[in-house]
């Protein structure tokens, strides 16, 4: 039994047939070739697969694809473009907030959701917003600094 999935991906309507037990993560990567969303633990612990569902960060590895039906999904491909980076992406580069980069897509989307909801967060609020996104490289400090810089409008 296939499910006729229709949703908005980065602002564009997408229609695809999926198995009802497929996760959004694998639909994005395998059916739609959007590989910016990373496969980490596939248990909802690491946050590498984070996407925005109607503006809220969700772990796409735990979300059955049919649950996205009729809703808006934003992946890292929709946050900025190489020609026009999102301010958070530019700040992550300037502050050296990425090393291996694997946590980056999820980290950036969690940060983007935070700043949409709360444009002027405290450091504590930033740390809470990204607490579901594990980073093994940076110690989080430069990530937190980069997000706070964007919130203060200090993006270079």
């Amino acid at each position: 039994m296939t499910f006729h999935l229709r949703f908005w991906l980065n602002g564009q309507e997408v229609r695809t047939e999926v198995e009802p037990d497929e996760t959004l993560l694998w639909v994005l990567r395998e059916r739609l070739n959007m590989t910016g969303t990373k496969v980490g633990c596939e248990a909802g612990d690491c946050g590498a697969c984070t996407v925005l569902l109607d503006g809220r960060p969700v772990t796409s590895c735990l979300l059955l694809a049919p649950k996205a039906h009729g809703r808006h999904v934003v992946t890292i491909e929709g946050l900025g473009s190489p020609a026009k980076l999102h301010p958070l992406q530019q700040a992550f580069i300037t502050y050296g907030a990425l090393q291996c980069g694997f946590c980056g897509p999820g980290m950036l989307l969690s940060a983007a959701a935070l700043l949409t909801q709360n444009p002027h967060p405290t450091e504590r609020e930033v740390r809470e917003a990204i607490a579901g996104n594990l980073c093994r490289c940076t110690g989080y400090q430069k990530i937190v600094q980069a997000i706070l810089a964007v919130s203060r409008g200090e993006v270079p």
Partner: peptide, 14 residues
């Protein structure tokens, strides 16, 4: 120096 800081901060977390 920025990369050196990043290495140190990440090492401390580990």
């Amino acid at each position: 120096p920025l990369l050196v800081e990043g290495q140190i901060e990440g090492g401390v977390a580990m």
